[in-house]
Amino acid sequence: MKKSVILGALTVAGLAAGAAGAATLDDVKARGKLNCGVTTGLVGFAAPDANGEWDGFDVGVCRAVAAAVLGDPAAVEFVPTTGKTRFTALASGEIDMLARNTTWTFSRDTDLKFDFVGVNYYDGQGFMVPKALGVSSAKELDGATVCIQTGTTTELNLADFFRSNNMEYTPVPIETNAEAQQQYLAGACDVYTTDASGLAATRAAFEAPGDHVVLPEIVSKEPLGPLVRHGDNDWGDIVRWTLNALIAAEELGVTSANIEELSAGTDNPEINRLLGTEGNLGEMIGLDAGWGKAAIAAGGNYGELFEKNIGENTPIALSRGLNAQWTDGGLLYAPPFR
């Protein structure tokens, strides 16, 4: 148990070092598993269930990429990361991609040397307060005690919001969502702030969700998306277009229910290209022709993933809002598959 672990690992390390510099795609294929960074647990986005199976909206993206690359949606190793560890985990190659509701910001994209491949959820920071407090607007929060999860853009937005409105507040920084919830419910803070989606997810887990309201103000833009290391553009393309495939599939009406039928060939050339029955898109990004089909079949298209994990019929009950297709007035707009 003791030395042999180190030896085994050293051997593995030696092997891995031999393959250093090779593209992420080859690494993933050689490993047979995709290492995907997720949160340590946020219901609806990524959380292990009672059997230890990861489930959620971000998890769905990981599984789609695994299905596209390896043909198996289960071939994912989920690596729980905190706000502190997520970027180094990605930079050091411990994970191949990060799908952990991470906000796309200028400095992260440039200074920290990552590539955001797209946006899988358009979010914004909101505030939740107990109904009993009688607050109806975030502008009334002068002097409040605010619970924040550390390691996110949240604390910066919060500082900006209160400063620009000339209000005072006491921040209570908390490491995990579970503890923030406990503090908020016990009344140790008046307000809980995080991304609106996270608020909805947290509120859903409460015993009496009706006693709490999410205030109408959204104080920031939080485009959340998966990201990869800067520099490996081939791998970035794969993750980017897998995400786009999920979005395009919804627009084109490809669902996990009809995908078998559609992949026999349809009259719509774009569906055919997406599902690999026409053209050679797969070859262009170094994957099989059926990559798109596999990705969509893994958990359904974007809309299905949304409905299943965070949609209106789930306890989290998020409406599509900005995350509707552009045809429905939302912001989702997949570039053409051609």
Partner: peptide
């Protein structure tokens, strides 16, 4: 958890 990876040969992947 955060720094050690930078001090190991590129591509090394310790648990």
């Amino acid at each position: 958890s955060v720094v050690l990876a930078y001090f190991l040969p590129p591509g090394t992947n310790f648990d």
